[in-house]
Design a protein around this nucleic acid. Structure first.
Lengths: 149, 149
DNA sequence: TTAGATGCAAAGACTTTGCGCACTT
DNA sequence: AAGTGCGCAAAGTCTTTGCATCTAA
């Protein structure tokens, strides 16, 4: 997995550049984020991290995620459920969550260009394109609800 | 306040139509929702309700909000913070939350027409227009950040 | 009358914090 | 060697649940 490896290196470099320390737990969280290309709750990250390093505690994961957010390494969003989901910044832009099957899809920021311009013009509101999280129904669930009923 | 009164009546009618019982706590929650024209957390609703009925417990408020959601009386959204916010369904469409001053604005659903069509066409995703919650920076905070720095 | 709703208290899910020791730099 | 970061455990916030009682219909 050469590409997720480079993503990990990039994260570690960012940490060093900010004069923070590179530690085993931080490396593990970076690997978990780079390995899973989707959205992970803090709990899911903890589980993944503990597969290799059982001694790493949830509180450490939260502290690291907080630091990573400061450094713009990750962003988080609150989707349908209370638990927030985290993912690497820059790699992802918008989220579509299906409230039927609870799956989250990622879509390119370009889809928000028109909306973003409109909100700016109409309300002076500057959309944060990293946090766009929309809920609705995905294709699959639309199709099955049609056939089922 | 004749207009919020009619909103309350409408809610109570919906409850009766669904063969649920109309109770003091439900009336109080309905009044809190109709009175505040904005977005309330469950906690804020509880506080408002307890101003008139101190004996009503938070768990009851949660149960009532759950029932109101089933009956499509209210919808909730997860904005920047973990706590969900609730508001009357039908009266509101989209939310813009400023992550600087933490204010939430409501905007008409019409602003999501283009986006909605695009998501449907590109991904087969049916946007739920009641749950649109976007975060960014509002005009005021944009202006002050410009002058401050 | 009687099933459903409530109040209270406890538990559960998610997240933050305090403290002393370990590890990175 | 110096001091940041960690593990553990406890606390904090937000929400759900169990159970006995009460009440709307």
């Amino acid at each position: 997995m050469p590409e997720s490896q480079s993503a990990v290196d990039e994260i570690l470099t960012t940490i060093r550049d900010a004069s923070r320390r590179v530690t085993v737990p931080k490396r593990a969280v970076a690997e978990a984020l780079a390995g899973a290309n989707g959205h992970l709750t803090a709990d899911a990250i903890t589980v993944e991290v503990q597969r290799h390093h059982p001694e790493i505690s949830p509180s450490t994961v939260y502290r690291i995620l907080e630091e990573f957010e400061e450094l713009k390494i990750v962003v988080h969003a609150h989707l349908g459920r209370p638990a927030a989901v985290y993912h690497l910044a820059g790699t992802v832009h918008g989220h579509l969550t299906c409230h039927v099957c609870n799956t989250t899809f990622e879509i390119p920021a370009a889809h928000f260009n028109t909306l973003s311009r409109d909100l700016k013009k109409s309300f002076g509101f500057q959309l944060d394109r990293h946090h766009v999280a929309l809920s609705g129904t995905c294709t699959n669930c639309l199709a099955s609800s049609r056939t089922e009923v």
